[in-house]
């Protein structure tokens, strides 16, 4: 299991092995939702807030 830094609080975030691009992780320290931008090497960014609205 690897680790990356939380872009919000700087704490380490544990990453599981089958990490997928687009996956949303929760920072165990600050609780921020983090989007996996790249899996290898791992790159995290704050996940965008998105309204849950759908088309036709």
């Amino acid at each position: 299991m690897s680790e990356a830094d939380c872009p919000e609080c700087g704490a380490g975030v544990d990453l599981h092995d089958d990490l997928e691009v687009g996956e949303i992780l929760d920072c165990g320290t600050c609780g921020a939702e983090l989007e996996v931008l790249a899996a290898d090497p791992p790159e995290l960014d704050t996940a965008p807030e998105l309204e849950e609205d759908w088309g036709e």
Binding site: G22, I24, E33, A47, L50, E51, D53, G55
Partner: peptide, 23 residues
């Protein structure tokens, strides 16, 4: 236009991009 949507895939929360919807 909204390209990104939040989805549940195999129990995982994900951001999926490339959607063609809007508000």
């Amino acid at each position: 236009r909204k390209s990104a949507v939040r989805v549940l895939e195999d129990g995982k929360k994900k951001i999926k991009r490339g959607d063609h919807s809007g508000k």
